[in-house]
Design a protein around this nucleic acid. Structure first.
Lengths: 204, 204
DNA sequence: CAAATTTACTAAACACTGTTTACAAACCAA
DNA sequence: TTGGTTTGTAAACAGTGTTTAGTAAATTTG
């Protein structure tokens, strides 16, 4: 009875098609213009069809977010390869900043907008960001073991490093950095310097 | 001819009434449920009337944001009074974190959502955040002069401190901190520890 | 004071949004 | 082939920001 398998396969293909349409909309127009109707039009189906495959928009965005985190994990794996833990930490930070600035729309979905987190309630936990954060924690644990950083607890350390990176990117993406009254290049430079200075600060 | 003056006064009163209605909606329901229609209903006017006093929603939100920044500045003035610059820096940080966690909806409008920044384009600069940021820069300049912190440039320093604080609050408000798999109290504690540890880090 | 004009306001519409419902067509099993 | 399930959609509902046309009150003018 191969029909059930084929149907299941077709179902997954459709889910994938919807995700890719949504991802494309996000990349091209940003999250504000990514409506169910736009996604439906992009994949040449009616809006109602999307609701046969996803409970609501939040659930769809959650899956798109998962896709984005897979991309980030892949980039980390490619860019943060140093054997020395602290060097790897530096690679992680700069890669993160670069990813955020080059993929502002995706960064929005991953770390700023509330929507995809609505599916994560009560007991259910957020697994999308797990791998990337785990990689950071692991690297910081090695840094601590080898006494390369002024931290004691790898989790607290990871949160602090992450918050610093996210803070800089988020303030930039959401234009609050305009308070500095700088040109685009100056801002980019200042953000880079801030991370660099911070890494110097935590180094033993 | 006092009529013109009275009309101008009435106009300002109406603008104020709209802002207060919007602010109330923000405080009670958050920005997602703050629609022009809701604000209009709250102040007992038709939605169209709001457009006689504000060009669009972004312009209104910008004014509400200004009000929020005035509130923050007032709180800073009340809470960060220490004569010693570094102590004052600590007060600023803890006050900022406290404000963010206690007024998540306002924090959203001030630092996270894009809308109010749309009115700030090209030449026009963002004055809402000027005072609060200036206060931080001023404090850090004094810290640097008295060699209390491991920073050279007060602007870069201010950006870094701000980014750290904002990063922690933003990740919390937008639920990304769920990756830590902690209880609400643990999160609150970890955020506080992170700031504390960071302040230790930058102290000479 | 009465007429003309300007001002202040709103009902209704437009073009969107996420989502649901009722229905049609395709597919599969008997 | 009949009957039932699956798959997809048009249309509607309730909401959004915003604009337009029109009304009623306030003000100025003759």
């Amino acid at each position: 009875m191969g029909i059930a398998e084929r149907k299941e396969r077709e179902r997954l293909e459709m889910r994938e098609r919807i995700i890719q349409g949504a991802l494309q909309m996000f990349l091209e127009e940003g999250y504000e213009k990514t409506s169910i109707r736009n996604i439906a039009e992009k994949i040449e189906y009616s809006p109602a069809t999307i609701y046969l495959y996803y409970k609501d928009k939040d659930e769809l965005l959650y899956e798109v977010q998962k896709q984005c985190f897979d991309m980030l994990a892949e980039i980390f794996q490619k860019e943060a390869t140093a054997h020395d833990p602290f060097t790897r930490l530096e690679q992680i930070c700069y890669t993160y900043i670069k990813f955020g600035r080059e993929n502002a729309q995706l960064y929005d979905l991953m770390f700023i907008i509330k929507a995809p987190m609505n599916v994560v309630v009560e007991q259910k936990l957020w697994t999308n960001g797990h791998d990337a954060f785990g990689f950071l924690v692991h690297t910081l644990r090695q840094c601590i073991e080898q006494k390369q950083v002024r931290f004691k607890d790898p989790i607290t350390a990871a949160l602090q490093v992450w918050a610093m990176g996210h803070g800089l990117i988020a303030l930039d993406i959401r234009c609050r950095i305009k308070v500095l009254e700088m040109t685009e290049e100056q801002v980019q430079c200042t953000i880079h310097d801030s991370i660099k200075e911070y890494l110097e600060l935590i180094k033993y």
